[in-house]
Design a protein around this nucleic acid. Structure first.
Lengths: 257, 257
DNA sequence: ACAAAAGTGTTTTGATTACACCCATGA
DNA sequence: TCATGGGTGTAATCAAAACACTTTTGT
């Protein structure tokens, strides 16, 4: 394991000095790979713990934009519709123990002290389709990956709780205003969409009823037959009618189950 | 107008030094007086602007408890079920102009600087019944009152927006888990409860249907006839079956309209 | 007796659920 | 032709909405 270079440390120092102290942002990004619900997690240089993406808010930056920036820097994910799911600030919410590893690797005490403070974190969440995630260009993170949402209890600090809260919010939001624009590929089938709903809700829904509801909402446009070599009847391909979809979000149309 | 005394200023200085910087909490407390929806507002000493109750989080204090403490200090309201409705942190969210009045009244530059910073605020809301509010014991506030929710656009800084967001959250929460424990007196009638719902929703609901729904939920216990001298048929008095009510909150019983 | 507000019941409508049946395809 | 999963329709159930009718009180 190498230590941080002097330039890197200076860069980090300037970055932290330009941010609001004791306030952080964390992003829970769900992904649906066709089967299960996953969560984006990152690993910092010189740390062996996995966390959800997170960072700090610059003095001149809106918190919503900070969330977008942080997420992009750490995962290259962009253009997501990020929504708050809560702000967490228990008094004992500081992670000096977890962070203490840094101090043994050339991280100066001043910076260790800064990030070891008690933090209040604002939670944002979103959901994407089959997107890949890439590493940031900066020097601070060494790996990023998707894990199954069921494995999120392995995350460090209180991030398992953040994922769990985000999932609850996602479920209830799914009832009224599903963020489908993000989470499906451009072209998809109704059975695929149903699998996504089932993954989020954690239960199965009736095939026929699901189909009827989705079609009644008029937000899907038929494209044609799937050419995939299935062992059964090929499903019909659809794309999202984005205009009608966005309209339906401003109305209080129920798409829930 | 008198200036702050040296002791008061020292007290304030110590208080602020023990709090997380650039982070505040604001509480939108709704009240239903039988007719209209009202909001609790306070006025600080040496300031002519009205705001919703708010303050800062101590270093050793959970944010939820900070919200309770702040609310109690400024309004004497206690034992409320406070819920977050969002966290607000636009980059330009600082109110040096509004705050500048303090500096002309013996408020030292150091403290003016502290409270003139850009702040991120966590919004909490609740709703109460006919409760009165009283002034805090401390030296910092001079008046507290209820205003009609429709007049909240007169509030200082961005507090009108906070009220508006809180009201939206209250409305949607009303659909699933109404906080009735807080907002009605111990004994009340169904028409009274209906007026409350109408005030929150901003529209009228059918009398017969409202009655049926509420009674079907089984959370009301009949007490007896109202003895009030009404010019019409006296309504039946009810009290809340708190046990069944709390049970219904954990289920996903719909009480919405 | 009448007005006014409370209490009750009924009809209609529409949404949700459960389930049955048919269809297209590859093996 | 059979298994598999996709597509479609329908009857039964349940909740919501609209509305009419009755009851109890003070005047």
């Amino acid at each position: 394991m190498t230590q941080f270079t002097a330039e890197t440390l200076e860069f980090i120092r300037e970055e932290l000095n330009s941010c609001i102290p004791q306030l952080s942002i964390n992003c829970v990004i769900f992904r649906f790979d066709g089967e299960a619900l996953q969560v984006a997690v990152v690993q910092q240089v010189h740390a062996d713990m996995w966390t959800i993406p997170g960072g700090f808010v610059r003095q001149t930056e809106d918190i919503d934009l900070a969330a977008k920036r942080i997420l992009f820097e750490q995962t290259q994910l962009d253009n997501l519709l990020l929504s708050q799911f809560g702000t967490f600030g228990a008094a004992q919410r500081e992670f000096a123990q977890e962070i203490s590893r840094f101090s043994t690797l050339g991280f100066p005490g001043e910076l260790v002290k800064w990030i070891s403070q008690r933090f209040v974190t604002i939670g944002y969440y979103s959901i994407v389709g089959q997107e890949q995630i890439g590493l940031e260009t900066g020097p601070f993170f060494k790996e990023v990956k998707w894990i199954n949402v069921l494995e999120s209890n392995l995350l460090a600090m209180d991030h398992a709780q953040l994922v769990s809260e985000a999932l609850l919010t996602l479920r209830s939001e799914l009832q009224s205003r599903p963020l489908i624009t993000n989470f499906m590929p451009d072209i998809f089938t109704i059975p695929e969409l149903q699998k996504l709903f089932e993954a989020i809700l954690g239960r199965s829904v009736d095939r026929g009823n699901f189909r009827q509801r989705v079609l009644k909402s008029k937000i899907l446009i038929k494209i044609g037959q799937s050419k995939a070599k299935t062992r059964s009847r090929p499903p019909i391909l659809y794309k999202l009618d984005k205009k009608k979809y966005l309209d339906s979000l401003t109305q209080d149309v129920k798409l829930g189950f």
